[in-house]
């Protein structure tokens, strides 16, 4: 499906969606509180069928964090990118998608571990790579580690 057509479909599903231009995929900015319902409808709408979450990453933008979902349809082959901005960076919260995509459970744990985004409703939100006693979130831009990271 072409990007324009996808855009129309998505506007019908979520009128408040914002779009960004990207050479490769269609970027959609989704408000955090609408995310779960929107993704459910993306997966269940018959001619969209976005059933395969192939990448889930978090980015620290100094003022706020974004969680980026790369979703594709295994049947039709079209992909979109969803972005969710968090409110500030003190207590960022995004709903979990573990019940829609099983893989999200573990990718979300990774984002929580390294960027400190709290996924509400997540069944098992623990650190995945680092120890449970680790202080701070290493992938954040203001993370300081005088021993292991050499500032240039």
């Amino acid at each position: 499906m072409e990007q324009e057509q996808l855009k129309e479909k998505i506007v019908a599903l979520l009128p408040e969606a914002e779009f960004m231009t990207n050479k490769q995929y269609l970027d959609v900015i989704v408000p955090a509180n609408k995310l779960h319902a929107f993704v459910t409808s993306l997966k269940e709408t018959n001619d969209l069928k976005f059933d395969y979450l192939f990448c889930l990453s978090g980015v620290d933008w100094s003022q706020y964090l974004t969680v980026v979902y790369h979703i594709t349809s295994s049947e039709y082959g079209h992909s979109i990118v969803l972005k969710v901005k968090t409110d500030g960076r003190e207590n960022p919260e995004v709903p979990s998608l573990y019940d829609i995509y099983a893989t999200a459970e573990f990718h979300e744990r990774e984002v929580y571990d390294l960027l400190g985004v709290k996924f509400t409703n997540h069944p098992d939100l623990r650190r995945i790579f680092l120890e449970d006693t680790w202080v701070g979130y290493p992938l954040r831009k203001d993370y300081k580690d005088e021993i292991n990271i050499i500032e240039r």
């Binding site: 990448c55 980026v68 790369h70 573990f106 990718h107 992938l139």
Partner: peptide
């Protein structure tokens, strides 16, 4: 600014 690696084994493991 940020480089994310979506590695196959991470998903395959769980």
């Amino acid at each position: 600014y940020r480089l994310k690696l979506r590695t196959p084994n991470f998903s395959n493991l769980f």
